[in-house]
Computed example of a mutant assay.
Amino acid sequence: MAPHDRALRRWLRSLADKRVEDLIFVNRPFPHDVYLPADVLLISSLRRLYLGFWYFPDIPGLPAGPHVFPHLREIGLCSTVISAGEIEYVLQCSPVLETLAIILSINPSSHVRVGSRSLRCAVLWMSMAREFAIVATPRLERLILWQTCPGAPSGVFPTNVKIGYAPELRVLGYLEPSIHALEIGNTVIQVS
């Protein structure tokens, strides 16, 4: 995709003009170190967005606020290199977001904080994060975790799961005591 940067940006602007609602945008084949064109953030009509095999663009200078993705209900970040700050940016730009899926992704800062008034489902699937904190998510019903440390021996890359304010949480799944420590409010649940 890297050699086609101009065409990609032109194509994304065209999708924005056509008010596309669903977009799956995958950088295949590799290289994996290609930055997502920031023009994808100009498609304010999106309701579902899935991104694969990208580096998320640097957020300084990008448009910000609830007008960026006013209709976005579902986002999947698949094999995407994205920092915790960039995840927070996406959440802040998506006032009606209901589903956040981080799949096979690398979070360089590895301390992911998820806070959203509209989020109902959060998924961390085969992704690396030292801490995955759910804060101020009054509508969150499901938190799905699975193999948050792909390929690492048990205990080498533990993930602390912190749940702050999530009064509607009904499903909390696939915790592995050897790699997950669970903290709910002030209560810490550990192995043994």
Rank of each mutant, 00 (worst) to 15 (best):
L175V: 01
D17T: 10
F132L: 10
L72Y: 04
E141F: 03
C121T: 12
S116T: 00
R48A: 14
N107E: 00
S118R: 02
S45T: 12
S118Y: 03
M126T: 05
F25T: 08
P3H: 04
L172G: 09
S83R: 14
I43N: 06
S83H: 07
C121N: 11
R130S: 13
L12G: 05
G52H: 14
L182H: 02
I179P: 00
Q147W: 12
Q92V: 00
P153G: 02
V40R: 09
S116M: 02
Q147G: 11
H180F: 10
Y89D: 00
R113N: 08
E21I: 11
Q190H: 09
I43Q: 05
G52F: 06
L182K: 03
T148K: 01
D58E: 11
L15F: 06
S127K: 07
V135K: 06
S79N: 15
T80G: 06
A101T: 14
L100T: 03
I189N: 12
I75Y: 02
W11L: 14
R130E: 10
E88S: 07
F25C: 13
S105V: 09
Y165M: 11
N107L: 13
L42F: 03
S14Q: 14
S14P: 02
P57W: 03
I184E: 04
P70F: 01
L182F: 04
L124M: 07
R113E: 11
R170C: 08
S192N: 13
D5W: 04
D5H: 04
A152Q: 12
P167E: 12
G151L: 13
P177S: 12
H4F: 12
R19D: 11
Y165Q: 06
G164S: 04
T159R: 06
G76S: 15
E176R: 03
T159C: 13
L36P: 13
R19T: 10
A129G: 02
T99Q: 08
R48N: 15
P158L: 06
Y55K: 14
M1T: 15
K162H: 12
E21W: 10
A64T: 08
E88P: 00
W146D: 03
T159D: 02
L62W: 02
L124N: 03
I87F: 05
